[in-house]
Design a binder for these strands. Sequence first.
DNA 1: AGGTATGTGGGGAAAAGTGGGGCGTTTGCC
DNA 2: GGCAAACGCCCCACTTTTCCCCACATACCT
Lengths: 147, 147
Amino acid sequence: MARFKGQAEYSVDAKGRTAIPAKMRAALSPDAQGTFTLTKGFERCIYAYPMDQWKLKEDEYSSLNTNDREARHLVRMILMWAEEVSLDGQGRISLPKSLSEYAGIGDKALIIGNMDRIELWNPEAFSTYLQENSEDQESLVQKVMGS
Amino acid sequence: MARFKGQAEYSVDAKGRTAIPAKMRAALSPDAQGTFTLTKGFERCIYAYPMDQWKLKEDEYSSLNTNDREARHLVRMILMWAEEVSLDGQGRISLPKSLSEYAGIGDKALIIGNMDRIELWNPEAFSTYLQENSEDQESLVQKVMGS
DNA sequence: AGGTATGTGGGGAAAAGTGGGGCGTTTGCC
DNA sequence: GGCAAACGCCCCACTTTTCCCCACATACCT
């Protein structure tokens, strides 16, 4: 299973393309075939799941009961924003307009490795997010992960 | 099994034809033979099942007890609106009047990939639907998919 | 300091989306 | 039964977008 980490601020060109850091590309499983599925993430960023990881997500969703109204709505909300993109010859992906708009990404993107997914942020939005969530990390660790 | 995702707003021409996004066509199983079965969907949209998926649906319905009045009625209601359509040379399908009327689709259609089916919406009707179901996604995830 | 790998930008070919025309079949009317 | 209008179907043509490839610049490693 691919495990991503680290961060980098890359530019997004006029065609909406942005490079994926070489280190993250190296961490990609061959099963992913250089393909990601992008979706809306929490906190106004874009989640990028390698294909192999996304398959697992889809399996989860398909096991939900489509006759239940709320489940139906949830799956619809998740999938309608999902888009599959592949790395081009230069290790870039192109961001769909709908998603880069959602995340407020213009000509710069902050790329963060986060376990089984990669996150793409508007750099300013991320620093705002940091300020708003500047709780002391030590006490956060204690709260989330126990003693 | 085909897994559809993503969204696109396409035009419906004067002849009632609308294109299916190339990415969804690509996701189509060869077994479907470029053929869909359209039915009334929940929430005033049209469901389009690829032929192979529809076969499974039919199996489900035929396994219901035809001696039960309600089951009989349900199957009748579903099947009377079902219509089979095929992609033309340009990757389009033509929408039966009865269904496009039901969904309120005029000269624009919002096309949404939703797992084993494709949904066709009136764009305005969909944004209304969104407003009426604007529950916080975070809590919805928690409710539907557990902690 | 040179070579290799990485990130950035742009141009051209191919495909996707959109609209319209023509032919054959069906349907309704005279 | 014959005619005409309507409808569906298939093909063709145009426009726009997307994708792929090539070229340059910068950073890194040796």
